[in-house]
Amino acid sequence: MARPLRADIDLDALRHNYRLAMELAPDSRAVAVLKADAYGHGLVPCARALEGLAPAYAVACLEEAERLREGGISAPIVLLEGIFEAAELERVEALGLWMAIHSDWQLDALLARGPGRPIPVWLKVDSGMHRLGFPPERVEAAWRRLAEAPAHACDLHLMSHFATADAEDTAYFRRQSALLSELAERLGAPTCLANSPATLARPESHGAWNRPGVMLYGSDPLERDNAASRRLAPVMTLRSEIIAVRELPAGEPVGYGGRWVTPRPSRIGVVACGYGDGYDRHAVDGTPVLVEGHRTALAGKVSMDMLTVDLTDLPQAGIGSEVVLWGRASNGEVLSVDEVARHCDTISYTLLTGVLPRVPRRYHGAPGNAPDPR
């Protein structure tokens, strides 16, 4: 019998979340962000599920774009970090990719390229995130160079990234937004600015394109949820089973280091899932878990292949009982990956992208059960 741990991927929920992104910004197009193996959900199956809905996809690097093309995806693909060396331009053109340009060397490499098809370019502005992008005072010169080289670049857009679109305090967001609005108006430039939190909560930032990422997978990126984010549906359910039960008296330590001690006579369930699967070792005692759709909690440190949960108040639970680490249980109860992440002192992005390859993905819903290409 196979180990019971698996990640169930609900492709209908993925499509629901993409439609929500479109509904929130009816005058924009939404590029579906699929970087980091579609946030751990499976790059090609998620891309296939969005065919016919998403007019374009976005990834971090050429290798991810190549996997999509090899998987039969023909829609435009944006390289969000552009190229990493000039030699990649040949593949960018051959694969029909779009690319961000965030630095002088990338701009020089594109304009020095020999004859070929012009490449759609999203010029990245450092509006305050201070990672990638041209400083605002140098954007116009870079834009003019691209606009004056139609044999090399086409379909120009301004692109930037918000540092605090998820926060309740909007002061820094407003500062970035005002700078970008002024630049776009001066250049007559279409924009791609809104990430997931801005798509959900900052309609003033919606441009020709938006970039929904983690929201597509059902995670709420907002510091405080809103009516839109409460409509997100979980896409991944990390699901396992109870594989052993221990009956312990009060005062017994459980797990490495004896961090958790039974406060009363207790039933402890052992679950086939651990940090070797990607479940966060930093999860504290009390981290929520669903057993047969009922909430209980982690009891003791996470091991490599197992973790332990308190079954004392769930007398019906035993060996073979369904365990949901995050996602939707069979009875419909949902445990948000965002709630689990808070107990691990991290964010949902790290949990979702951290599910390791030994955990099989099982795909459900439209457009049918897609095979796991890994």
Rank of each mutant, 00 (worst) to 15 (best):
L95Y: 10
R186Y: 08
G251P: 04
A49N: 05
P118C: 07
S74K: 14
F162S: 03
D280M: 15
V270A: 04
L43G: 06
V340N: 05
D305F: 12
V334D: 02
G293R: 07
R186E: 11
G368L: 10
V270C: 03
A184C: 10
G96I: 07
N210F: 05
E204T: 06
A54P: 03
L80Y: 07
I243S: 09
E241W: 05
A370T: 09
V284A: 11
G365T: 08
V245L: 11
G42R: 07
R48Q: 14
E241T: 11
A86G: 02
R342F: 08
V214P: 03
H130R: 15
D37T: 03
A184P: 05
G42Y: 08
P253E: 08
L53H: 04
G82P: 04
Y256Q: 13
E81L: 12
E182V: 04
G365S: 08
V44D: 06
E88H: 03
D155H: 13
T296D: 04
P197V: 09
E292S: 15
N369F: 00
G251I: 09
P371C: 06
R144L: 04
D285A: 08
L62N: 01
I243P: 00
P367L: 10
A56P: 05
I101S: 00
T164A: 13
V323M: 06
T287R: 06
L311F: 13
I83H: 01
F84S: 14
G96D: 04
W326D: 00
R281L: 13
R91D: 09
E140N: 00
R69P: 05
D220M: 07
E90V: 15
L187P: 02
T287N: 03
Y39K: 03
G269R: 05
A370G: 01
A299E: 01
A94F: 07
D345Y: 14
A317E: 07
S160G: 14
A142K: 01
F162M: 02
N195C: 12
D313H: 15
G300D: 06
S266C: 13
G114K: 05
L14C: 08
T312S: 15
R358A: 04
Q316K: 12
T237M: 12
L24V: 06
A21M: 07
R211G: 02
A94T: 06
T350L: 15
I268K: 03
A171T: 13
A87T: 12
L95P: 01
M159G: 00
A341S: 13
M1I: 11
A370W: 07
L180C: 15
T262F: 08
P234M: 11
Y349P: 00
G258W: 07
A317S: 12
